[in-house]
């Protein structure tokens, strides 16, 4: 199954990349957008034979250890189900 890890900069942290994208959107006339934050989406393919709990624990550990830097980033795990 596919699992997505969404990584975002913590709310309190300045995101200059998001600001630059926001600025570019404003220049294109998208006035209805108030703010932009840029994050990362990492998709993992994991075997289906584990229990939801073991899969969750593994992905959580992988996220904490490597995929996200929890000093500056928050992560969220989303289960995308069977692969297409």
């Amino acid at each position: 199954m596919k699992v997505a890890v969404k990584i975002r900069l913590k709310k309190s942290i300045l995101d200059p990349q998001g600001k630059a994208v926001h600025h570019a959107l404003q220049n294109l006339g998208f006035d209805g957008i108030n703010d932009v934050r840029v994050g990362k989406l990492i998709e993992l393919e994991v075997p289906d034979d584990g229990t939801p709990e073991t899969i969750h624990n593994m992905v959580e550990e992988a996220s904490r250890k490597l995929l996200a830097n929890t000093v500056i980033e928050d992560f969220e795990i989303e289960y995308l189900g069977e692969k297409a």
């Binding site: 942290i13 300045l14 200059p16 990349q17 630059a20 830097n69 000093v71 500056i72």
Partner: peptide, 17 residues
């Protein structure tokens, strides 16, 4: 060194990108 936790904090994208 910061990623390894031997020093505290983090190093992020320069403010002017």
């Amino acid at each position: 060194l910061v990623e390894a936790g031997l020093l505290p904090g983090a190093l992020m994208r320069n403010a002017n990108l």
